[in-house]
């Protein structure tokens, strides 16, 4: 498909999307295992609110939403660990409030098309300026993940043990939240506020159908995520009027079903 690259926006969406898929898949393994799957959903809704306000005020979208979402990630983690309001309730509170505020702002300023593109993503959303910032963010996420891989494993598997033996688990939880926030803000333009969290959850769950070690699950998630993204974009390109974000999610769903079946057959064979 050489002509696909003649469109600058497609190429940008492909580059940014692949990087985001990779980051989301890596972080997703830890988030899913820590029972934090919904944090991605909560943060993307906050991101939507921030984006809506930024565009109403004619500000650069990423520069506004990145700090806002990072702050929200800290608040969510803080609330979850303090336990006055339980984690899932806190996420629901924050995400629906942000969604409501965003919806009001959009209704006062923009047309319905914009709302649609915020919610379900747009393949044309990435401008050249966004491209550079997106790449920088993704590279930060990838480098930090590799450097802290062993610690992230330890904190995910058993936080109390890690803390008791001197691993600064608070620091690593914060790093995970920070990286998740970055990934979501960068990815939600293409994938949409409602769909971005599937990039975090699907690849990890898909890999866990078959693989049994943390390392293999992590590597497989990264590969599955990127392949699903490419399939999703190809669907969008070749089929008329298919929304990109939704196509990527459907590709992920397909992968999940295939891996579930394979895992089932493998287990059957072993018995």
């Amino acid at each position: 498909m050489p002509e696909i690259f003649q469109y600058g926006f497609l190429l940008r969406a492909l580059v940014v999307g692949l990087l985001v898929s990779l980051c989301a898949a890596l972080l997703g393994v830890s988030l899913v295992l820590k029972r934090f799957s919904m944090i991605g959903d909560g943060l993307s809704h906050v991101g939507f609110g921030a984006l809506a306000i930024a565009s109403a005020l004619n500000l650069a979208p990423l520069q506004v939403s990145i700090p806002v979402v990072i702050v929200a990630a800290f608040i969510l983690l803080r609330i979850s660990s303090n336990g006055k309001i339980k984690g899932d309730a806190a996420i629901a509170l924050l995400s629906s409030s942000a969604l409501a505020i965003g919806a009001i702002v959009v209704s006062q300023t923009n047309s319905a098309t914009d709302m649609n593109s915020y919610m379900f993503g747009s393949i044309m959303a990435i401008s050249n300026d966004d491209l550079a910032l997106s790449i920088i963010c993704s590279v930060i996420v990838l480098v930090m993940f590799v450097l802290f891989y062993n610690k992230i494993f330890a904190v995910t598997f058993d936080e109390n043990f890690s803390k008791a033996t001197g691993v600064k688990s608070g620091v690593y939880n914060t790093i995970i939240a920070l990286l998740t926030a970055l990934t979501i803000v960068v990815g939600m333009r293409i994938m949409g506020a409602l769909l971005i969290s599937s990039l975090i959850i699907f690849p990890a769950l898909t890999s866990m159908r078959i693989f049994r070690s943390f390392r293999s699950v992590t590597i497989c998630s990264a590969i599955v995520s990127c392949v699903s993204y490419i399939i999703g974009i190809a669907i969008t390109y070749y089929a008329d009027n298919f929304p990109a974000g939704a196509s990527v999610v459907v590709a992920n769903l397909g992968m999940f079903l295939i891996f579930s079946l394979l895992g089932f057959l493998l287990r059957k064979k072993q018995q």
């Binding site: 295992l33 062993n150 070690s213």
Partner: peptide
């Protein structure tokens, strides 16, 4: 913990993590 019941990790990965502190 409940989370460990379906945690994908090999024995060696778990034991090695004891060294991190």
């Amino acid at each position: 913990t409940a989370a460990q019941k379906d945690f994908p990790a090999t024995v060696r990965e778990v034991v090695l993590s004891g060294c991190l502190g």
